[in-house]
Amino acid sequence: MTHPVLLKVEGLTKHFGGRPGLFRAQRPVLRAVDGVDLVVHRGETLGIVGESGCGKSTMGRLLVRLLDATGGKVEFDGVDLLSLKGRALTAVRRDLGMVFQDPWASLDGRMTVRDIIAEPLDIHRAATGADRRRRVAELLDVVGLPASAADKHPHQFSGGQRQRIGIARALSLRPRFIVLDEAVSALDVSVQAQILQLLGDLQAEFGLTFLFISHNLAVVRNIADRVAVMYLGRIVESGPTQALFDAPRHPYTQALLSAIPVPDPERPRRRVVLKGDVPSALAPPAGCRFHTRCPIAQEICRQTPPVVTVGPDHTAACHFADSPLTAS
């Protein structure tokens, strides 16, 4: 990846709970994100995959400052994102966008599509009057909706169309970095492909940088340039999409890939079936967090957290990432 770095994350951590309040008992600490390092290059799509509770959504929310981090550092285009406050934070928000999962809950049903799309413009006083109308019409056109959509309400649209409205809103301030949190997961497959195509086109046209969070590996493979796999608040493997899908090095990535039902009844299955469920983020296992479910775990895995290794672009937090695995 020769492109310059847009976003650099170091040791990002988010813990929930723990602090007792006046009427509230001390709660156990939930380590949703627990020391994540990653880099996003300008103009690329970084896919974040993992199962529910792995912290991928929380991480996305930290990166657009929807949540305040417990620790770590995020450098966005040379600016220390996490320390920004007040006006400086509002200013940097012009560069950050987010697209949400639920096409119903992410649009305020009482507003017209125009007001929804223009809301970021209104907040930043970026366009008023005729200019505002023109911008909304442009944005609708960009996401493939007719200009007449502006005066309707969200309930008059299908799920896919609503997701287009959400994308138009995210684009309204021409941000450079957009977090897409399960942006196509609630859609039917045939519509999902429409939105994926749109996102690809938009990225090419506007030079956008995407953080694409999804539990669906097939979708991520299709849209991402690089992929990071999360498990219990940590990144266990990351690398160029093709390398990671063709030759996964972490046993969790291997299991994840092999677990996906493939729409081809005639293909022989080589499945790594993991035992049990993901442990609770309230009490993550010591050592390698995956050792409780890992088919190749050894004594060392129970004690020492693995160090990230492999190639220059490809990292895997596994003690045995270098040895060719035959997990099946």
Partner: peptide, 26 residues
């Protein structure tokens, strides 16, 4: 808890705006 509140926050909306534009009407 609605995601449109999050969307407004990502865009930089302050509490008063969120309450007035989204929370109260809904």
């Amino acid at each position: 808890r609605m995601e449109y509140i999050d969307a407004a926050r990502v865009a930089g909306a302050g509490h008063l705006r969120i309450i007035w534009r989204h929370v109260l009407p809904n």
